[in-house]
Structure formats: C-alpha cells, structure tokens
Computed example of a mutant assay.
Amino acid sequence: MVDECGLCRGPEIDKELGRVQVWEDELWRLSTSIGPGNPTIASSYLEPKRHIPYLPDLDGAEAATFGSVLARCSAALRAVTGVDLVYVYIFGGTPHLHVHLAPHREGDALNTSMIKGELVLETLSSGVTGFQSKEYAGLPEDELEAAATALRAELNGFHSSSSS
C-alpha cells in the first residue's frame, strides 16, 4: 500500500468514487459504478490490491493471474447485463493500475474510437473495417516499420507460459 494512493485504500474509497466492491480474492478486487451520473450499465473497475502503478509494472502473482481474472470478470459482466461485448480500457492518468470494464449495448454512451477526430472508415478485402483519423496524418511507414522491428527484437525469446 502506498499512503498517497487513493486506490490503495480499496473499498474505503468506493463511496467517494460512486462505486461498490462486488468481488475480491487475495490479489484483485472488482468494483462497480453505482452513480451518480453513469450513463452505462455496470461499468466496473478491476484493480490489483497491491500497489502496481501501470500495466508494464505487473509482476508476480498478479501478472500470472491477470488474464484469467480479466476474462472471468468480463464473462460475469456479460452474463449479468446480457451484453455481447465488454470493452476493456486502461488509461494512464492514475498511478495505480485499474482496468475499466464497460459492458456495451447498442446505442449506449460508449464508442469504439481509439483515436481523436472524425474517422475515415474503409472495409478491407478481409471484411474488417480499417480506420484513419481525418485530423491526424498517418506516421511515415519507415517509422512504423522501425518500431515493429524494434518490438520484435525486444520480445525475441519471450514465450508466454501457455506456449511453453
């Protein structure tokens, strides 16, 4: 626990944030928004109990269980709300990892936009919809290729435990 971190306070901060804890185990907790003003059903927040600032800082038991806990919480949200999709968002503004789980219903306040501005949509030959921002130009392809090459080198030799 980090004294100055509000999210390290766990359920103690929930009332202030307009939410209630609905599940926990020894490593994780899930809280759900109960308002006021939430325009979507069962918006929830998955957080490690231990202070872990951001996603790249996950380690130990939290790293080992993150995927299964995320999948189980998302499945429970789908079952309870009857939605087909639960959006998963991770923002970096608060230095305690918290994953937003947002059940999505057609016509609700959520959207699929990952980038700012008006989007240009294109149906690709695969049937997948590609998108680009009208307001932000695409980065040079050589810069994108260099980033992909550097990432490949950084991850060379990494194998998830499920593929070992």
Rank of each mutant, 00 (worst) to 15 (best):
L55E: 07
S113H: 09
T112R: 14
F66Q: 06
L144Y: 04
V120D: 13
E12K: 11
C8R: 00
S160W: 12
T149A: 14
Y89G: 12
K15C: 10
T32I: 15
L124M: 14
L124P: 07
R152L: 11
R19L: 03
D142Q: 07
V2C: 06
E143N: 10
M1L: 14
T81K: 03
A42G: 12
F66K: 02
T129G: 00
R50G: 01
S74D: 03
L27V: 03
G127N: 08
S161M: 05
G107D: 13
M1A: 14
P103D: 01
V83L: 00
S126W: 06
S163C: 11
W28K: 06
F158E: 15
A102L: 15
D57Y: 02
G60V: 03
L27N: 14
S43V: 13
I52M: 04
V22A: 08
I34Q: 14
Y136A: 03
S68P: 08
R152G: 04
D3G: 13
S31C: 01
V128W: 09
E154A: 15
P39A: 01
Q21R: 13
Y89R: 14
I90S: 13
I34D: 15
G82P: 06
S31T: 09
G117E: 06
L46P: 08
L70F: 04
G130N: 06
T129R: 13
G35D: 05
D59Q: 15
P36H: 07
S160P: 03
P103H: 01
L144H: 06
P48A: 03
D84Y: 08
